[in-house]
Nucleic acid binder design. Sequence first.
DNA 1: CCAAAAGTGTTTGGATTACACCCATGA
DNA 2: TCATGGGTGTAATCCAAACACTTTTGG
Lengths: 233, 233
Amino acid sequence: MADATTATAPIHHEVLAAVLQVRQGTLRVLLWQRAMEPHAHRWSLPGGLLRMDEDVETSIRRQLAEKVDVRQVSHVEQLAVFSAPDRTPGARVIASAFLCLVPSHLDPELPGDTEWHQLESLPDTAFDHRAIAVRARDRLRAKLSYTNIGFALAPPAFTISALRELYSAALGYRVSATNLQRVLSRRGLLEPTGRTTRPGRAGGRPAAEFRFADASMAVTDAFAVLKPPGQQR
Amino acid sequence: MADATTATAPIHHEVLAAVLQVRQGTLRVLLWQRAMEPHAHRWSLPGGLLRMDEDVETSIRRQLAEKVDVRQVSHVEQLAVFSAPDRTPGARVIASAFLCLVPSHLDPELPGDTEWHQLESLPDTAFDHRAIAVRARDRLRAKLSYTNIGFALAPPAFTISALRELYSAALGYRVSATNLQRVLSRRGLLEPTGRTTRPGRAGGRPAAEFRFADASMAVTDAFAVLKPPGQQR
DNA sequence: CCAAAAGTGTTTGGATTACACCCATGA
DNA sequence: TCATGGGTGTAATCCAAACACTTTTGG
């Protein structure tokens, strides 16, 4: 409601999450289907209004808890503000959008109105949520190249070929297991668990198991060019 | 999505700009000195409250016009939202922060309360504005490596050694003119104007003049690793 | 002719891709 | 022993940093 002491009409602030996970070999985003107008039946990103006592990151974690167990979210980062005056009908709402990741081995319980949708074939989306989801996908793809963010898509332990499938699904093209292992190893991101997995019925050599050395995001390939002098990579 | 009838206290939304320019060989940020409480006498980033009819980028360009001629701003991009509930005393204000760049050959008229401050030795700053300025600096430094963003720091035409000084000032370490030229040339970012500059009193070979081929930001070194197959750089 | 500044040639090291080949297992 | 999938060796390519050397000017 309007505050009589302010000269401007109130602007509401919401937080929205593009929660991404690799499922069944494709990159997917969590969407819920709106029951009511506006944009009834269309699919929306989870989120909601910011509360007075929380910053935007605290808020998105709280709101996400209504859709998925927050402890299953392995990474949260700000994407951008979406603020077009007409991005929603009626009262003005500014959105702070987030990229959130869930590791592939988890399968959170979901409310009935919620589903994982392939990013490459999104259904009818509400408001500007399609643009937000696409932005999240692009941010993830870029960061797979120069950060250790793969840890947030992968289970605690994995084989190189399992990791290759995660990277391939997220990036949208086939990644070579050989090169993936070398790039991540040279950067010191991977460490062997010492264990191996048993081959399937078809046989084959048992695969060595690895884990990511760190479970928080760090830039691993900064200053690709124009490095400070005397600092060969 | 927001329900406009929710009874929450109003949250104000402001936009803030970290306007950066290389001046006298160092990277600087535009700050104005607050006259009134809160944080009187401390230095602030330019900006102000968002209006009902503008998105955040439109707003920051409008507000900036009060401090510098907006036509002199060569690049504007969103940095992040700063939303800690106690980031300002009194009514809650959420800030959308921007990185803005001004080319080095311009010297905008400034209001009396406004000055360019070295980023490496900031004065007492108001609120969380120091953190925002530092974030802007870091973003600029990262993007100098993998985008053509140098165009936004440089005049329309320049010599390689002038460009080297801009990059050195922005990055905070000495960049080699030889390698700078080769990196930017290989990426097709530089084109010769055909003209040369006259050497100073001390003599020396006349320097060739160059310009940037594009005047809007583009990523020039994406997919540093894990490139799609068959796509050698 | 010398100093100064700009520009080019070349070497070196490193990173990444691509691909051939070897290893360990189930049947 | 063979098919299968995992893992390692290695060559080819490309990029960028470093530095020596050449070019063009003013005095």
